[in-house]
Write a protein that binds this DNA or RNA. Structure first.
Lengths: 201, 201
DNA sequence: GTCTATAAGATGATAGAC
DNA sequence: GTCTATCATCTTATAGAC
């Protein structure tokens, strides 16, 4: 919902003076938060990557916290898109495996910097701002969606299974990052696929 | 190996003038890194909790990086102890479940601040220091140990299973932390227990 | 070994010209 | 709306008295 507000202001002035500066700032921040972490990323870093003067950042975001919130909103939208992208045409099992594949396909990036959402979540969970709980919403979107799929499979324990799935992906991402080894994510992805295939209603 | 060196200097002067100050500093740092994260924790914070004047910290640790390294070493020792603690008397399956229980028993703390080692690992993975890979050693100790247990069960795919186990625990810890819900860790712990029980050689 | 004071540098945020 | 200059603060680290 918050995301929509931001999007609207962009749409209202698509090629105007602001020229997607806000958009560039958010994307630059998202990348840098992933690569270096929120705390280690300065507003000067973000401004430089977005090719925007430092002082101008504050025109778009009153505080650094607001910029972080905007990045979370982008992930929220992305999670929604990820979930929508799994078309209704295929079977629930295929859809679940498609979700897992999203991480496996990005295993090089994940091994280098961790899961974008997972690492952001871990970092913000330790913050004193009012953002601690926000990234959990992103996971909630994915878990809810996975739960639906498991329910379509006729599983009563759909919620548990959904938590297991996301939990498995996130754990694999963490280990892959720790060891800088994309192979861990690939292997765990195959394990999860086999697990999904083996499920009976 | 690094851990032993530090320990020796303590043993050499168990109740001397330094009076375990170094020990207090490491333990305070460990707690604060867990609660707030490494980046957000200042040496002043550590000094205050350890009841040591700020300037004195630098007598024990030349840089903040060195203090972080000492905390990792403590986790390495702890991981070794955790693994040793699982006595040889019980079955491999019981030993594996005992490992899982270690996290489940601490679910309140994990839900609040995340897995101590997992969150440290995630944070350091993004660092530019030479410490990025260190926390992975802690996981390596646990994975190697779990692999042994699975091998005793006669599993050829012991390595994969060991990665799945630790990955499952870490993912559950991450979600529990994101949602501030110890229940997730409890449920995933039960799932992992059932999974271990269901394994055949 | 212990501690105070402070230097040196980085960073979030603001004021105000254009 | 845009951007420069700068303030105020925080944090690592050091110098040097005791």
């Amino acid at each position: 919902m918050r995301a929509r507000c931001y999007a609207l202001s962009e749409v209202a002035n698509p090629v105007g003076a602001t020229q997607g500066k806000r958009e560039r700032l958010v994307e630059s921040a998202r990348e840098l938060f992933h690569e270096q972490g929120v705390h280690a990323t300065t507003l000067a870093d973000v401004a430089a990557r977005a090719d925007v003067p430092l002082g101008n950042v504050y025109y778009y975001f009153k505080t650094k916290r607001d910029l972080v919130a905007a990045v979370i909103d982008r992930y929220l939208d992305q999670a929604g898109g990820l979930v929508d992208a799994s078309g209704r045409s295929r079977s629930p099992k295929a859809r679940l495996k498609a979700l897992v594949a999203t991480w496996v396909d990005q295993r090089e990036l994940v091994a280098r910097y961790g899961c974008p959402m997972g690492s952001l979540c871990g970092e913000l969970a330790k913050c004193d701002t009012d953002l601690e709980r926000e990234p959990a919403e992103v996971f909630a979107v994915m878990i809810d969606w996975a739960e639906e799929q498991f329910r379509e499979l006729g599983r009563r324990d759909a919620r548990d299974l959904a938590e297991s799935l996301i939990s498995g992906v996130q754990g694999a991402a963490l280990l892959a990052n720790a060891f800088r080894d994309p192979g861990i994510l690939a292997r765990q992805g195959r394990s999860l696929d086999r697990w999904i295939d083996s499920l009976t209603s």
